[in-house]
Nucleic acid binder design. Structure first.
Lengths: 229, 229
DNA sequence: ACAAAAGTGTTGACATTACACCCATGC
DNA sequence: GCATGGGTGTAATGTCAACACTTTTGT
């Protein structure tokens, strides 16, 4: 460790696996690379990090630049470290999972990304570098995380119906759930609150609207309780 | 990305949270730092990585140098990336969890570590950098992982008794388990095999010896089954 | 009135918990 | 023969899965 120069010459990047939910589909945010290598090909949004740059902030900045969303849910997944994953040298990429509400997201080009777009996760095209593997890891993480943590509400509007919530679980987990069993389970959770309001102008019978109450969820956790789908 | 020099000047390190089980205690491997900063203080084993170095191999090498164990169980946890975590510059540390059998581990000084020693996890002293936080993350990961994956056998001898297995679960999870319920649950798992052999020279009544059969475990998984403690 | 999705309870199967005594061995 | 930990079954409770009809609204 006496001669630092042989160690301080790697690069750090972040890659963001950003999911949204729209038209009853789980979609992933992909961009076209603006620079070589792989210029013009599809990739996860991300970028190299300056040595004094905070990774969470970098992720927030990238996501805000592309989608306009501030304060999105984000979580570090893991580092992708293959020595040959990047042709320009040693680039360790730290992958983040992020969830954004589709209504609030307005995609635009930025210094990080050209032609950003949402792709149905079930029809995800091939990506550059090891981004397919990063996306796969993120999806698995999401699938396991929504079973025990209330992050799914990040993908819904503030007010949502139980059928919407159920369909979203079914879409992400790729399973089907029994409506009555699903609703009975939720009935115990006081942090999913009935708002006395009804859905506006649906095609047929309107459903009740609910909200996720974060304070009540915290109280629920403090009692040592854990919810599980 | 046109001028790479402003990005390729960070360092990557690995840190290993190595657990073992001895004298009915879960212990963590700590070393004394041989170099500045924090020379002589307690730390997790680890080290800086060369730009062409594979991280898994580096972890294996470090653990083998200190404990003598080859092919230990290891798993990447996450990256620790605080800009100020290391005083010498930007060092992103990738943390690994590893499990070693105590009988096979013979600690010795190496280029990575002086005075390596096992510390009861319940009495872990303060560590340098952000290593306390890394160790805490690793412990939580271990606690959650042993409930659904058969990694606990990495900490036991090849042949073990059910009371040993139960005590190990209790130690790691810091809970107490009902002996009969615990054994009934294991009875369904054909990958925990009775060896017809008995424990040698115990103080009192000898217990039956079991082995973990990895092939049978894989078959069990292929049937879509999941075990859960 | 009809089409469509919202909303609602019961039952049987299975899993989990709680609990106490006899057994095998070393000394 | 006694001290110690190894080994065993049952009953009550709670949880989970399967299942079909009525209600509300828009057209």
């Amino acid at each position: 460790m006496s001669d630092n120069s042989k160690y301080f010459n790697s690069a750090i990047s972040v890659n963001c696996v950003v999911f949204t939910y729209v038209e009853e589909k789980l979609k992933i945010l992909l961009i076209r690379r603006e620079f070589e290598p792989f210029k013009g090909l599809l990739a996860l949004p991300g970028g190299l990090i300056y040595p004094n740059e905070d990774l969470q902030q970098a992720v927030s900045h990238i996501i805000e630049s592309i989608t306009g969303n501030k304060n999105v849910y984000k979580k570090q997944l893991q580092a992708f470290t293959d020595t040959k994953r990047h042709p320009s040298g040693r680039v360790v990429s730290i992958a983040y999972l992020a969830l954004v509400n589709h209504q609030k997201a307005i995609l635009k080009d930025s210094s990080f990304a050209i032609s950003p777009d949402w792709f149905n996760i079930l029809e995800k095209p091939q990506l550059v570098f090891d981004h397919d593997s990063i996306a796969e890891t993120a999806l698995q993480h999401l699938q396991s995380e929504i079973r025990n943590k209330p992050i799914i509400f990040e993908l819904l509007d503030e007010k949502f119906t139980l059928p919407q919530l159920q369909t979203l679980y079914e879409t992400i987990l790729n399973i089907s759930l029994d409506k009555r069993n699903f609703r009975r389970k939720l009935a115990y959770l006081d942090f999913i609150e009935d708002t006395e309001e009804m859905q506006k102008n649906p095609l047929y019978r309107p459903a009740k609207l609910y909200v996720f109450n974060k304070e009540k969820y915290n109280e629920f956790c403090e009692k040592g309780m854990v919810f599980s789908l």
